[in-house]
Amino acid sequence: MTEYKLVVVGAGGVGKSALTIQLIQNHFVDEYDPTIEDSYRKQVVIDGETCLLDILDTAGQEEYSAMRDQYMRTGEGFLCVFAINNTKSFEDIHHYREQIKRVKDSEDVPMVLVGNKCDLPSRTVDTKQAQDLARSYGIPFIETSAKTRQGVDDAFYTLVREIRKHKEKMSKDGKKKKKKSKTKCVIM
């Protein structure tokens, strides 16, 4: 069974824990209790493949930012979460993405942009803004509501699919490099 290491990042209060708990335990946590770091595991079937999701729910508070490099190193894919009623959390996505790329030393890291709290009427981040940002990053965008469960499975499952595509691409690139290195030079 394939294991996928997913990391949920975003500013404090955007609903990272609520999304994760909704996926794992099928219930909505409405009281806000700032996370330092929590880890969850769940076995699911995605596109006919049974897999184990190892999900790291991270601290959004700035005082825990020193811990970010460590979990970013171990993560295979990242859910970059903002709240649709919090423009600052949307603007912060850029910083999370840049930090992930720096730590992973790669421009090509599996990510999904997630606009959470889409059940709320007080939207300050337009869907088109988020779609445009995701398009500019070359990553999928999904709106979710941890409260109603809308888009929750889709967000995590899409990230797994992005990781699969990335692994497939990397193995193809690896095979191309191996083929090239088999060419021999004969000096007579």
Rank of each mutant, 00 (worst) to 15 (best):
P121S: 13
V152W: 15
C185D: 13
Q70T: 12
L19Y: 15
D153E: 08
P110N: 09
R68T: 03
M188F: 14
D92F: 04
N116Q: 14
G15K: 00
S17M: 00
D173H: 07
I163E: 01
L120D: 14
I55H: 12
E98N: 08
V152I: 09
R73A: 13
L120C: 12
S122I: 10
F90L: 10
Q99I: 14
L159G: 03
C51D: 06
K5N: 03
R97S: 07
I139R: 06
P140R: 01
M188R: 07
K176W: 03
V109M: 07
G60T: 15
E3S: 04
E37C: 05
S145P: 03
G75M: 06
T58L: 03
A130Q: 09
V45N: 10
L113V: 12
V7G: 02
R164F: 14
L56H: 06
M72W: 06
E62A: 09
D126I: 07
I187M: 07
G48A: 05
Y157V: 12
K176V: 13
Q131V: 09
I139T: 09
D33P: 15
T87G: 12
M111H: 02
Q150F: 03
V114W: 07
D173P: 12
K117L: 15
G75E: 02
M188E: 09
R149Y: 11
L53S: 08
K128P: 06
D108N: 11
D30C: 06
G174V: 10
V103C: 14
Y96Q: 08
H95D: 13
A134W: 04
L52D: 02
T124E: 13
G12A: 01
F90V: 11
V160S: 06
G15T: 02
N86E: 14
K176A: 09
H166S: 08
I142P: 02
R97H: 10
K165H: 09
T2Q: 09
Q25N: 05
S181D: 07
A18M: 03
R41E: 00
V9W: 14
I36W: 00
I36M: 11
I93W: 08
R164M: 12
Y4G: 10
I187F: 07
E76V: 15
G138I: 01
Q129M: 09
L79E: 03
S106G: 14
A130E: 08
Y4H: 09
V125G: 11
Q131Y: 04
D105R: 10
Y4L: 14
L120V: 13
K16I: 15
R161P: 01
L79G: 00
V9G: 03
T20P: 02
V14A: 09
D153K: 08
V45S: 09
G75C: 15
K177E: 10
L56E: 11
V112K: 01
T183V: 08
D154T: 07
V44W: 05
I55F: 11
Y32D: 00
V44A: 06
N86P: 09
D126M: 07
C185K: 14
R68P: 01
Y64C: 06
V125W: 08
K165I: 12
L159I: 12
E168F: 06
Q25W: 02
L53F: 10
G75N: 03
Q150A: 11
I55L: 05
A66T: 13
A134V: 09
N86K: 09
F141Y: 13
L56A: 12
E62Q: 08
Q150R: 07
V125N: 11
A66N: 13
S65L: 02
D54N: 04
R73M: 09
G13P: 01
N116Y: 00
R149E: 12
S39A: 14
S39Y: 06
K88F: 15
I36D: 00
H166A: 10
G77F: 01
G77H: 02
E37N: 01
G77I: 15
R164Q: 13
R68W: 02
V186Y: 14
D153W: 07
V7I: 06
V7Q: 03
K117N: 14
D132E: 07
G13F: 01
Q22K: 11
D47H: 03
M111Y: 02
M188D: 11
S65H: 11
L52T: 06
M111I: 11
I142Y: 02
D38L: 00
R102V: 08
D126E: 07
R97I: 15
K178V: 08
L133M: 05
D173I: 07
V114Q: 00
D119A: 15
I46Y: 08
V112E: 00
G48V: 04
N26E: 12
R102F: 03
H27C: 11
E91V: 02
K5R: 13
C51I: 10
L23T: 15
N86C: 11
F82I: 10
A83I: 03
E62K: 03
G13L: 05
I187E: 14
E31K: 08
C80H: 04
K165W: 08
K128L: 05
D30L: 10
V160W: 03
H166W: 07
K16D: 15
I139G: 13
I46A: 08
C185Q: 12
C51K: 04
H95L: 10
Q22P: 01
A59N: 06
E37Q: 02
D54M: 00
T158P: 07
N86M: 01
V125Y: 09
N26Q: 11
V45E: 11
D105S: 13
Q25T: 14
M67C: 03
A134I: 07
V9T: 13
R102K: 15
G10H: 04
T183F: 05
I24R: 02
K176C: 06
A155T: 11
D132F: 08
M67E: 06
I36A: 02
E49K: 09
R135W: 11
M188H: 11
R149H: 05
F141M: 05
K178P: 13
E76C: 15
S65E: 06
Q43G: 07
R161C: 05
Q129S: 09
K182P: 07
T158E: 12
L52V: 09
I84A: 14
K117I: 15
L23M: 14
M67P: 02
K128N: 06
R73W: 03
D108W: 06
Y40S: 02
S65V: 02
H27W: 15
T58C: 13
V125I: 10
I139F: 03
C185Y: 05
E3P: 10
D132C: 05
M72I: 11
P140H: 04
P140S: 03
Y32I: 04
P110C: 05
K177H: 08
F28N: 00
F82A: 14
K184A: 07
K128F: 06
D33C: 01
T58D: 13
V44S: 05
L56Y: 07
F28M: 05
Y4M: 15
T35N: 15
L6A: 03
V114M: 12
K117P: 00
Q129P: 12
V14T: 04
T2G: 06
H95F: 14
